[in-house]
Design a protein around this nucleic acid. Structure first.
Lengths: 202, 202
DNA sequence: ATCGTGATGTCACATACTGCCATATGTCAG
DNA sequence: CTGACATATGGCAGTATGTGACATCACGAT
């Protein structure tokens, strides 16, 4: 990896970390872009070349999650029942979270805490989650060769599985503990699996 | 109802209708607030006294839906299984949509068409939907006397039922036909009911 | 008729973003 | 090592969203 790319990556992480700390310290709305740019000694104009908007700072981690889930989904055998594939994709993500680096864990928890105090950001996050689910639906529908806007089944499969993630994420972080969040997601997923009638998705 | 209130209501609807027509004509992003205010001969500052933001124009109808669902939920007998109460709340909403006034139907379909061409607005709408679900979860949890952040059950109940609404809403409106949308929501809800194992929510 | 309350308009202002062009810096070929 | 190219960055000007403060006007109760 060239010097250029490394430098860019460094700037991106620096902007993210500076922003998270400033947000937690003095509030999201009270932190202008200029201040974030100032903290990492970068022009405000440059900020928008790394993140399309202020919100995007918060959604960026989320985008990474979506990406890995789509990759796992693509690697599952094509003849596997879609619900099972989805549970695998979610569990792979849970494992990724369990074994994340301390820095990543810290960032995740900072975002999590921020969402508790800034409803607007929570909304954006859920909006992005819905968007992710739409892409997952399309992936599953494509694999089955059905039109996702004709059959509701792919949509239901995704909704049922992702419910576990959303519910686990919603429980208040007090104190913030990633392991606890992951465990709750796993428990909820098992509850969903138990609640469904065998063969419901055929 | 006094003249004052009637006038306010008239202004609100005028702003909404003018905005929807302008948005559909020339696009959401290309329509500044000033133009909407100009169209109903009101100062831009006044616009923000009726709608907290440009997005709020689109979310306003949605807020009405949430309100009626919460009311229906509150009227259901306390000993009814929560999942059944939720299905009643949703079906009440479906009936409201079926028998809406032509003006309301037109507004609904305009919003629906707008969401197809403006992803950003679709995101906001879904974010608001998640927020509504949160309030429904709290209502159901309160009725059962459980902490919604301890037990995942109220959350699952709401997610499962509202999935039908979301999926029905998502199908493309081509041509826009409210009856078709309502029918699709009802079908999906029945599919959800069939997919769940009896007694799953106890 | 009049007075108080609430709706509206006007102005000033902070902040989020965007386009444009000049400059600086990494990259690669010779 | 050097020059040419590509790309990242900075600065500036401009547009749009949203907010606070204050004056003015219209409705409504007495």
């Amino acid at each position: 990896m060239g010097l250029r790319e490394r430098k860019k990556e460094k700037t991106r992480v620096a902007l993210l970390d500076a922003a998270l700390d400033l947000f937690l310290e003095q509030g999201y709305d009270s932190t202008p872009i200029d201040q974030i740019a100032e903290a990492v000694e970068v022009s405000p104009r440059t900020f928008f070349r790394y993140f399309t908007s202020k919100e995007h700072l918060i959604l960026w981690l989320h985008d990474q999650v979506e990406e890995t889930m789509l990759e796992v989904l693509a690697d599952r055998p094509a003849d596997e029942p879609p619900f099972v594939s989805m549970t695998h994709a979610l569990r792979a993500q849970l494992r990724t979270m369990e074994y994340a680096t301390p820095d990543d864990v810290a960032r995740f928890l900072k975002v999590r805490r921020l969402l508790d105090t800034t409803p607007h950001l929570a909304h954006s996050t859920f909006a992005r989650a819905v968007e992710s689910e739409r892409r997952l639906v399309e992936a599953i529908a494509a694999r089955q060769g059905v039109d996702p806007y004709e059959s509701p089944l792919p949509h239901l499969v995704v909704t049922f599985v992702m419910a576990a993630m959303r519910i686990g994420f919603t429980c208040p972080a007090d104190p913030p503990d990633l392991q606890k969040i992951v465990r709750r997601m796993e428990e909820t997923l098992q509850l969903v699996e138990r609640s469904l009638r065998p063969g419901w998705d055929t």
